[in-house]
Nucleic acid binder design. Structure first.
Length: 799
RNA sequence: GCCCUGGUGGCGAAAUUGGUAGACGCGCAGGACUUAAAAUCCUGUUGGCAGCAAUGUCAGUGCGGGUUCAAGUCCCGCCUGGGGCACCA
């Protein structure tokens, strides 16, 4: 009897389906285990052999845990909102909902074909109104919350209002603007609108302003990576920075907890490090420098090296810094204006590619050193960034290489505070040794001097210790169609959440979800708003006091994926995003498998949302993913043919170096190993139909190279083909066999034969030519010993 | 530049807390079965030296040192592949 994997696999797949074998209940006396894959974005191209790698690993683990007596939650769904579907819609006019549906269906078939044990009764799609209803609901929770820095947790905005009524914001300084202060009396005197504006500075989801790339010709807002060399990637039109009102999530408030939370997680060090870098915590000090001849005006800088305070020889501001216009002297004004224009004309890319070049201008103004009381010049330069720290630095040329280069370029005298350690040629950036020429810091170890310096700065009332983060608040608005609409209505330009009683709305209008309407065109509106702005009947909402206007942007791709792991726990609940009972039972994801590309996007936002929901008492855990494994990429192995230049004649790999040839990629599916199937090649594309060949030993050999698997490189291997030829078990086993789960490796169909043979041998243990050969004879002790050793080994390996 | 990772046969790779390096597979070589081929099965496969042979022996996990009875594994310094961040003050 042959190993007939087709009928075996077919039999069990049908059995699983008919009997709902993998349906999981939330009521079980067994211990729980939650194994999750990063859900895919269902693109039109379908799955290739690289996608299932992580799914196979998680599937094996889920099955293993189930056999070990755990109640295992192992669901799958689709991250269905997103730009590609919208772009496809613009090109073809097909509604994204329809193409997304079709693609998801195709994915589902391909996944089933590989024999995964997902509980499909829990399937979710982020574009489903039953799902995004709760994405919108979570947005409302964010909108109605603020972050209490003292308690280090999110609290309802009502409690903040109560505090404001009692004591103003004196104890709760505003994160965005420290000068924004008011007392209880002022608060009470304000109009509702003024109060709402003040609260906007505290909400976890808030409306702010951001510079975005605006392209007049395309009539749309572009993402950073859609702008190349100062023009739009598509069409090459000019772009400009435009200030737009956008929603943000106040993720910066969670910076410390996001950082500390990493400690307890079983993630790879690389992954944790990426998040740490992204959060970018650095400890140092803010120091105030008074400006000469401008009484009461000062510049605040941030430094991580307060110990080098005596080495400050000048101040540098970002060209966009708000003080620049004020302090620039008349004879420097035109030079400064020219420089600002020059900086504005340069794209991010240009700035990055010319890192070594020193540029800048003297403002003509001077600052007074708060400790040494020296007078030092103030410059502007693009190497200081507005977005980081205070947008101003104290330059210490003897201790910082960029400051050093700047000082040399502008002939600014350099104060040496490191004695022999500084050689006059290159800044001393080390931290070994003692300070010199530094007043009361003289002779103190560099490493210990920071504390002393900060105390002195505080005593002089010139600044304070300060922790700075690189992390920015997360932009949460997209001027697009295919995403979750915001549950927000503006009345006289004041934003209200639709569940607020202050918004005079009919009760039925308050209900979630705010459904995404059908549109005629997916193109953005002329004003730079999203396509939704083109639908007056949807945008305009009657209220008791006049006409309200809906928010016309939609939420970004990461909105739906920031909490989907919770919905799987209770996917059909219409009353809440997931019952407390369900989330208490399943808790956090025990094992999460997915690619590294989400290191700082999805994984950081999910962590924040989880913490917010935890703070507000909706769930009982504050980290979403306990253990994370990153599967590597399976690369494609491309095949090349070599065409004699200017002809339709193809020369085999071993002979190509003797002639002038052009390299062409050829579909890997018509190449066996390296040998080209010439007949299939001729049929592949019409232009090859009458191709001629120069052969080696009667065969045509292709060249090979490893690159990313992609349709355009003709190196895509479809799992369906492999399953059809060898069976799902062989395919699954081979993917696991290719190498360690977490590194990238090329797909090579050759080796699959070995795995297939192994399975055949395995089959032979139980069947011979006549059929089933297993009998009821008792096993010998020796046989039992081998069996149990094997079971033990398999268990340990899987863990 | 900074941070994180890895470097083991011809190839993909194993090797638990420091304890027989190279499991398993690919490829290759030889053999069995066959008129022949495919499929299947068996044997060999890190290198040097010795031996007709079974085998013995020395060397060997990127390079150079070190700790240890014992190092692929731990420590120090270099070389190098991959990934991430990057005028971040």
């Amino acid at each position: 009897m042959e190993y007939d994997f087709r009928s075996i696999e077919q039999k069990w797949k049908s059995y699983w389906k008919e009997n709902n074998v993998y349906k999981v209940t939330n009521d079980s006396s067994k211990p729980k285990y939650y194994v999750l894959d990063m859900f895919p974005y269902p693109s039109g191209a379908g799955l290739h052999v690289g996608h299932p790698l992580g799914y196979i690993a998680s599937d094996i683990f889920a099955r293993y845990k189930r056999l070990k007596g755990f109640n295992v939650l192992h669901p799958m769904g689709f991250d269905a909102f997103g730009l590609p579907a919208e772009q496809y819609a613009i090109e073809t006019g097909q509604h994204p909902a329809k193409t997304t549906e079709q693609n998801a269906e195709r994915y589902r078939q391909q996944l089933d074909n590989i024999g995964f044990c997902y509980d499909w009764s829990r399937e979710i799609k982020t574009s489903d109104p039953h799902y995004y209803k709760w994405t919108q609901w979570i947005f409302l929770q964010l909108f109605h919350s603020w972050y209490d820095k003292k308690l280090q947790k999110a609290r309802p905005i009502k409690e903040l209002i109560a505090l404001f009524e009692k004591e103003g914001n004196s104890m709760l300084p505003c994160a965005a603007d420290a000068t924004f202060c008011f007392d209880a009396k002022a608060w009470k005197s304000w109009t509702d609108q003024e109060k709402r504006e003040a609260l906007m500075h505290y909400r976890l989801a808030y409306l702010g302003y951001a510079d975005v790339w605006w392209c007049e010709d395309l009539g749309t807002v572009l993402a950073n990576d859609e702008v190349v060399n100062g023009v739009s990637e598509r069409g090459g039109f000019p772009v400009e920075r435009r200030r737009m009102r956008q929603w943000f999530l106040r993720i910066t408030d969670y910076a410390d907890r996001l950082l500390e939370g990493l400690e307890g997680l079983e993630w790879t060090e690389a992954m944790k490090e990426m998040q740490r870098n992204w959060i970018g915590k650095s400890a140092g000090a803010e120091v105030r420098f008074d400006i000469q001849d401008l009484y009461g005006k000062h510049i605040t800088v941030f430094t991580t090296r307060p110990d080098t305070i005596f080495g400050v020889d000048f101040i540098v501001l970002a060209p966009e810094h708000e003080m620049v216009d004020l302090i620039t002297t008349e004879d420097q004004r035109s030079a400064v204006e020219d420089y600002k224009k020059y900086v504005k004309s340069r794209s991010e890319r240009e700035r990055m590619s010319e890192v070594k070049q020193v540029t800048g201008r003297f403002t003509g103004a001077y600052a007074i050193h708060p400790i040494a009381h020296r007078v030092i010049p103030i410059y502007i330069s693009e190497y200081v960034l507005v977005g980081y720290g205070t947008g101003a630095i104290m330059a210490v040329p003897s201790g910082d290489s960029r400051d050093h280069a700047f000082a040399k370029h502008f002939d600014i005298p350099i104060t040496n505070i490191f004695g022999n350690l500084y050689n006059g040629q290159e800044a001393y950036t080390g931290k070994e040794g003692k300070l010199d020429n530094s007043g009361f810091l003289n002779g103190i170890e560099i490493k210990k001097a920071a504390q002393v310096a900060i105390r002195a700065i505080e005593d002089a009332d010139a600044g304070r210790a300060k922790i700075n983060y690189r992390l920015r608040d997360a932009g949460f608005s997209r001027q697009r169609y295919w995403g979750e609409p915001f549950p927000v209505v503006y009345v006289n330009d004041v934003p209200y959440a639709i569940d607020e009683q202050a918004l005079p709305l009919k009760e039925e209008q308050r209900e979630l979800p705010v459904k995404l309407p059908m549109v005629e065109t997916y193109k953005p509106s002329l004003t730079g708003e999203g396509p939704l702005a083109n639908i007056p009947s949807w945008v305009n909402v009657p209220t008791a006091t006049g006409t309200g206007r809906r928010e016309t942007s939609t939420m970004p791709g990461y909105a739906g994926s920031s909490w989907y792991f919770l919905r799987y726990m209770d996917p059909h609940n219409e009353k809440t995003f997931a019952s407390r009972k369900a989330t208490d039972y399943w808790q956090e994801v025990d094992l999460y498998i997915g690619g590294t590309e989400h290191a700082v996007g999805h994984l950081l936002y999910s962590r924040m949302w989880t913490k917010v929901l935890y703070d507000l008492g909706h769930i009982g855990f504050d980290e979403p993913f306990k253990k994370l494994i990153n599967q590597g990429m399976i690369q494609g192995s491309s095949r090349y043919v070599y065409r004699l230049r200017g002809t339709n004649e193809y020369v085999s790999y071993g002979l190509k170096d003797k002639m002038a040839t052009d390299e062409l990629r050829v579909d890997v599916n018509i190449v066996d190993g390296l040998e080209l199937d010439i007949e299939a090649f001729k049929k592949w594309r019409p232009e090859f139909a009458d191709a001629d060949f120069i052969l080696e030993d009667g065969k045509y050999f292709c060249g090979a190279g490893i690159e990313k698997m992609s349709k355009s490189k003709y190196n895509v291997v479809n799992p369906d083909d492999i399953v059809a030829q060898y069976g799902a078990d062989t395919f699954r086993m081979y993917e696991m066999f290719l190498g360690p789960i977490d590194v990238s490796k090329p797909w090579d169909t050759k080796g699959i034969e070995g795995v297939h043979r192994f399975l055949k041998k395995m089959w032979r243990l139980f069947f011979d030519e006549k059929g089933w050969i297993v009998n009821d004879e008792a096993a010998t002790p020796e046989e039992l010993r081998v069996l149990h050793k094997t079971i033990k080994k398999i268990g340990e390996d899987i863990e």
